[in-house]
Design a protein around this nucleic acid. Structure first.
Length: 514
RNA sequence: GCCCGAAUAGCUCAGCUGGUUAGAGCAUCUGACUGUUAAUCAGAGGGUCGUAGGUUCGAGUCCUACUUCGGGCGCCA
C-alpha cells in the first residue's frame, strides 16, 4: 500500500452541535475531486470555527442567538424585492425545513441567492433567531450562503414543491427521499427498525444473524432465487444429463433465504429468546401492492413457550413499535394523517391502549358464514382464509388488527405444532385493516415422532431435515415464534397502501432499477 | 400466473357522439408587489398526444398489436 503523506491531508474540525469535535481527514484526491467547486473548499476551510447544526437541532432553539451553520437542500425560495428572500432548507433530520432569511445585502444576493431553486445544495452560515414571521418558531438570518451544488436544469428537476403521484416518485427513486413523503417514510422506517432492536434487546432477546445464502431448498415458504457461479452459457452436466451442481460454488444447489426461522430455532434452543432480522427473498411472481421480491422480516423465537405466549409476544412487540413511532416521529405521523390517511395516527394511538382481539379460526369461519354478504370464495371449515375474508374480519367485523389462531392442519406448514384435536395446528396470523396478514407465526412441533409424521404427510424428504430433527432429539422444548413483514408494518403505520413506497429501492417481478 | 384500467407540456390533469391553431394549474424564465409560508398579480417559453400499424376526406379521440405503468385476485410476510 502506498505510503500516504500526512502533509497531503487536510484535517478539518467540525463541531456537531453538542460541542463534540469531529476530526475529518480529507485526502488530496478528495480535494482534487472538489477542484471545480471552489465554494466547497472555501466552506471546508471556513467551517472550522462554525457550529454546524442539523435542521432538527437548529429548530429546537437550543442555540438561539448563536452563529451557526446548517447544510441541506433547498425546498422553496420566495423573494421580496423589498430586500429579502426566504429559503426553506431541508436536511432530512426532521420533517420541517428551516427558514433561511437572506437579505439583499448579501454579496451574492443577485447572482446566487435569487437563482436558488428546489434541489440546490447549500451551506448557510448565520444567526439563529426567533422568527419574526408566522409559521415557524426559529429561523436563520443568513450571513453567508454558499452553493455546494446547483440544479443544472431547474425545469427538469423532478422534485417540485407540490404533490407528486406515488407512481411518478417510484420512477425517480434516487430523488424521492427529497420529498416530504418519502423523507418521512425513511425516518419512520429507521425509528421502527431501531425500536424493534431496542424493544427485543431490553427483553433479553439475542439478535441472531441467520444466513442470507442457504443450501436448504426445504424452507417451504415459496419460490427461491438461485445463487450460482456456474456459467449459464456452459453448464456442467452429470452423466445422466442433469446440471452438475457439485461443480457450483457451494458444491450443491444454493439459494437466497426465504426465512431465517429454521436456522434461528437452533439458537432459540440454546439462547432461549432470539430473533433474526434481515432481508428476505421470494421469487414468487406476485404482482400486488403488498408483495416484494426483497423485503425485511423480523422473526422472534422463544423457548418454553406456546401459542398464547407467542400471541402475547406479538401484541406487546407491535405495541412497543407503535409507541416508539408515536414518541419519536410525531412530526412525520402528523403529515401522514394530514395528507395520506386521516386515521393513520389515531388508529395506532387507539391500538396501543386496547388489547388485541383474538379469535379462533373456527370462530372466524362462523363469523364469515354469518356475514350478510357474498364472498367470491365460499366459506367452509377447512378453507384457507382469502384476502376478502381477512379484510372483512379486520376491517369490518373487528375494525382493528385481529389475531386468528389454530388453523386446520392441512393448510399450514409441516413444522407447526399439531393440536390435541388432531385437526388443527397452533398457528396464528395477525391481520391488519388495509394490509392483511402482517404477522404469521406458530408454536413449533417439538415432538420428534409427530414431526416425522408431518414431514412424511407433506411428502418431504426426511433426509433434508437431519439437523432440524436433531433439535427434537437433544433437549427438545416447546417453542414458538412468528415473522413480521417489516414493510407491511410500515404501510400500516404510514397509511400507505403500496409496499413499494416504504422501501427505498423496491424489487418486484420485472422491477429492479436503481 | 389470471382479470381490469391507464398512457396528452418538467409535474398534476382537462380535451364531449372523430372536424380549423391541443388547453389549465403548478414548475421554469422576465417583470410588478409583499416578513413571505406549496405567497400573489401580469407576461413568455415549453407538446411528434407511449410505440407501430389500420379505418376515415380528416384521428389526441375509433380498431389491432406491442411497450410501460397502475389496480384487483392468487401465492405470502
Amino acid at each position: 500500500m502506498r505510503k500516504r503523506s500526512r502533509a497531503a491531508e487536510l484535517r478539518l474540525r467540525l463541531t456537531d452541535g453538542f460541542g463534540v469535535f469531529i476530526v475529518q481527514s480529507v485526502t488530496r484526491s478528495q480535494l482534487a475531486y472538489h477542484r471545480g467547486f471552489k465554494s466547497v473548499q472555501y466552506a471546508f476551510t471556513e467551517l472550522s470555527t462554525m457550529t454546524v447544526l442539523s435542521v432538527k437541532q437548529a429548530l429546537s432553539g437550543a442555540q438561539v442567538g448563536s452563529e451557526i451553520t446548517v447544510r441541506g437542500w433547498v425546498r422553496t425560495r420566495r423573494d421580496s424585492k423589498a430586500g429579502l428572500s426566504f429559503v426553506h432548507l431541508s436536511d432530512g433530520s426532521c420533517f420541517a425545513p428551516i427558514q433561511i432569511v437572506a437579505a439583499a445585502s448579501l454579496s451574492n444576493y443577485t447572482d446566487t441567492v435569487q437563482h436558488l431553486t428546489a434541489g440546490c445544495a447549500i451551506i448557510v452560515e448565520g444567526l439563529l433567531l426567533p422568527s419574526q414571521g408566522k409559521g415557524q418558531s426559529f429561523e436563520i438570518q443568513a450571513r453567508r450562503i454558499t452553493v455546494c451544488g446547483w440544479v443544472e436544469n431547474p425545469e427538469t428537476y423532478p422534485i417540485q414543491p407540490k404533490a407528486h403521484s406515488l407512481e411518478f416518485l417510484r420512477e425517480v427513486a434516487h430523488l424521492r427521499p427529497r420529498t416530504n413523503l418519502v423523507g418521512a417514510v425513511a425516518r419512520v422506517r429507521h425509528t421502527a427498525m431501531t425500536a424493534i432492536h431496542r424493544c427485543l434487546s431490553e427483553q433479553g432477546f439475542i439478535w441472531v444473524n441467520t444466513p442470507i445464502i442457504t443450501t436448504s431448498d426445504a424452507e417451504g415458504a415459496g419460490e427461491m432465487f438461485r445463487v450460482s457461479t456456474l456459467d449459464l452459457a456452459n453448464l456442467p452436466h452429470t452423466p445422466s444429463g442433469e446440471v452438475d451442481f457439485s461443480k457450483d460454488f457451494f458444491g450443491k444447489e444454493a439459494f437466497l433465504t426465504v426465512s431465517g426461522q429454521i436456522n434461528v430455532e437452533a439458537y432459540c434452543l440454546a439462547m432461549s429468546k432470539v430473533y433474526t432480522f434481515g432481508p428476505t427473498f421470494r421469487a414468487e411472481n406476485s404482482n400486488t401492492t403488498r408483495h416484494l421480491a426483497e423485503f425485511w422480516m423480523v422473526e422472534p423465537e422463544i423457548a418454553f413457550a406456546d401459542l398464547i405466549d407467542n400471541a402475547t409476544l406479538a401484541e406487546g412487540f407491535l405495541k412497543a413499535i407503535f409507541c416508539a413511532i408515536l414518541d419519536e416521529r410525531s412530526d412525520d405521523m402528523a403529515f401522514f394523517a394530514q395528507r395520506i390517511e386521516p386515521t393513520s395516527l389515531t388508529r395506532i394511538q387507539a391500538l396501543v391502549k386496547a388489547p388485541f382481539e383474538r379469535i379462533e379460526y373456527g370462530e372466524a369461519i362462523k363469523i364469515l358464514k354469518k356475514a350478510n354478504r357474498p364472498f367470491t370464495f365460499p366459506v367452509e371449515w377447512g378453507i384457507d382464509l382469502q384476502t376478502e375474508h381477512e379484510r372483512y374480519l379486520a376491517e369490518e367485523h373487528i375494525g382493528r388488527p385481529v389475531v386468528v389462531m389454530n388453523y386446520p392442519e392441512a393448510i399450514k406448514a409441516f413444522y407447526m405444532r399439531l393440536n390435541d384435536d388432531g385437526r388443527t395446528v397452533a398457528a396464528m396470523d395477525v391481520l391488519a385493516p388495509g394490509i392483511g396478514e402482517i404477522i404469521g407465526g406458530s408454536q413449533r412441533e417439538e415432538r420428534l415422532d409427530v414431526l416425522d409424521r408431518r414431514i412424511a404427510q407433506f411428502g418431504l424428504n426426511v433426509a433434508d431435515y437431519t439437523w432440524y430433527r436433531d433439535l427434537r432429539r437433544y433437549g427438545t422444548v416447546p417453542h414458538a415464534g412468528f415473522g413480521l413483514g417489516f414493510e407491511r408494518l410500515l404501510c400500516y403505520i404510514c397509511g400507505l397502501t403500496n409496499i413499494r413506497d416504504v422501501i427505498p429501492y423496491p424489487r418486484a417481478p420485472g422491477q429492479a432499477s436503481f
